[in-house]
Design a protein around this nucleic acid. Sequence first.
RNA 1: GCGUCGGUGGCAGAGUGGUCAAUUGCAUCAGACUGUAAAUCUGACGACCUUUGGUCUACGCAGGUUCAAAUCCUGCCCGGCGCA
Length: 408
Amino acid sequence: MKKPLQFEIVAKDTKSSARVGRIETPHGHIDTPNFTPVGTKATIKSVLPKDVQDVGVQAVLANTYHLFLQPGEEIVKGAGGLGSFMGWDGPTITDSGGFQVFSLGTAFGKNISKISTDVVDADGLDVFREETLTEHAKLAHIDEDGVTFTSHLDGSLHRFTPERSIEIQHNIGADIMFAFDECTSPLAEYEYQKEALDRTHRWAKRSLQSHMQNTLASEKQALFGVVQGGRYEELRKESAKTISEMSFDGFGIGGSFEKEDMSTAVAWVNDILPEEKPRHLLGIGEPVDILMGVENGCDLFDCVAPTRVGRHGVVYTEYGPIRISNKKYTTDFTLLDENGLWDFEQKYTKAYVAHLFRADEMVAGTLASINNIAFITKLMSDIRKSIQDGNFAIFKESFLKKYYRKNV
RNA sequence: GCGUCGGUGGCAGAGUGGUCAAUUGCAUCAGACUGUAAAUCUGACGACCUUUGGUCUACGCAGGUUCAAAUCCUGCCCGGCGCA
């Protein structure tokens, strides 16, 4: 049977699990490690596909749940699939809706991120503990068979099962799809993580079966299984083992992490996942997290951070992120991107972009988003080069040293 | 000139005897954001002091009434509108 995806490892780091590879999809190739910007609703917010492409991006990631709600899977299918619908020629990826189980479920209405920074009060108790015990209005309700969502758009009810998520993803037609999983909260206790993990494994099996039943789709589209398990070593390892025993085309590492030991958790998983298949660290991340992920053997990353943070006025620079709308930049006539990574024809100064943000002009978010995507994309390309040149560790260290020195 | 309504913190605009250093919006200053409920959200925003607290100076200006005034009274200054 024809395989929808080829993955070839072209270089390995000798001192870490980092590797350089190449993924072939029906819509083109992806050099790994690589970063895919998030275009949830078939658009990378405020940025045109052409600009994303010019900056060196090779693949984009969209969302099954959001596209299902709006405009509807049939419309995306009718357009010829996600790529042609949004005017993106390259490879595409869809998330299954598993993240919405978290963001519209236990995280709804709360200030909880999938990355926990270990907030404890004076008594050493988790300050969010009480909150986790309090029931509140959620838009996602989980049962063994699937998830019932209340649309955040109009309150209508919708049912997602593994089979349904896969069916929708077939209609959307991305090159890489994900099994329907449950992204759990970082605040969930072992007992719940275990219960959710077992269910996610059953859903993984059903996702895979459902995918393979559609031979037409499974010859064109790859399916990645998702490893969960929260911050628990035992669960992460069990999950990696269980998921890798299923015949997925690649893997996603999902769920919640403690910021401090995210790298340990990723290492546990990647030690077990088969080396010859690509690993996508879902929803990560910030430059430091990407370097960590690469070091521990991850090949793909996606994150809303570059665009979200960009729209909100934060610009990535080699000397760390800066809040460009701050007063001090209003008279800073140095270039936004001093290394000319992307604005080699148009020269945008910090003062100009600061002005655009302060004047509430739409392009402000656009320029910051492109800058940030360009920054991460350049980082990925530098990472690949450093691995191939055998100096990944040195590159990592010098990058971080610069990036985390205090901002100018 | 007469009549009438009004003058509140950077702006707009609430408040009309004590719970008012004064609602709210904007502006300003700062922060958060990791498989996008997000071009969103949060905090600060008279000065000083070590605080959940305290002191001082403030609602056009100057007096007055009152235990207490942004709020009531008198005069003045300024503005809108109407009539001459």
